[in-house]
Design a protein around this nucleic acid. Sequence first.
DNA 1: GAAATGGTTCGATGCTCGTCTAAATGATAC
DNA 2: GTATCATTTAGACGAGCATCGAACCATTTC
Lengths: 122, 122
Amino acid sequence: MTAATLESSTAAACCAPIAREPLGEGDAAELAALLKAVADPVRLRLLSMIGSHAGGEACVCDLTDAFDLTAPTISHHLKVLRTAELISGERRGTWVYYRIVPETVARLGALFAPLAEPAHRP
Amino acid sequence: MTAATLESSTAAACCAPIAREPLGEGDAAELAALLKAVADPVRLRLLSMIGSHAGGEACVCDLTDAFDLTAPTISHHLKVLRTAELISGERRGTWVYYRIVPETVARLGALFAPLAEPAHRP
DNA sequence: GAAATGGTTCGATGCTCGTCTAAATGATAC
DNA sequence: GTATCATTTAGACGAGCATCGAACCATTTC
């Protein structure tokens, strides 16, 4: 699935729009898990750093230096993001490089977009 | 500013505001607090119920009945959403009605939105 | 007023999560 | 093969959070 596919689906089928109809129990749990992965200052900054880094990928060594946290802690946060499929990591030689998964990030954006529209309901 | 904007995004394919530049420590903490308010299955369903309810507002009595939770718990979750300014409550007579605050929700949508509006960029 | 109904606040409890130190794994250089 | 740097895993501790029962405000009705 590409970013374009997701974009075209914001108004229609794919991802459950939060304002069209009440969220089911299962969908809510799944989305909450995804949101929980982003609902942390460190992980938010990590995501932003990786996404804004030149070339679209960032080395763990760069990320670790930017925080006042130990390497295991950063690794833990990266694992949470990876488990949520928000980022993907690849080892090339000594260092591991992380990259953003645009589809998952776009899914978050599409979640609240319908709600933001003023007067989407009569 | 619709499909053309997306087409213009290049190989990085990440045009979400969060990927424009690294998030500051203060902004990250503030956004994480906002996200944490939504990163819960119950609150997500509450938000969806309120947002999809006819007239744009929902009574607490309706919300409480939809869950297998006690009234204090629902009230707690509503308070979290209210503190985050995601919803606003108003008492009319016997019942309390909650309504969505579109500005705050829009902020969430804009964060990860694949179609970043030019006006929102700093 | 007094009673009844709708909502919120107050403590308490059990669980989850972020962080650390210590140890293990992976990869390169000598 | 051994030394060394980079990253992850394992285990443990403390803080925060979701949930509950009970007590507490607000509004209507008698």
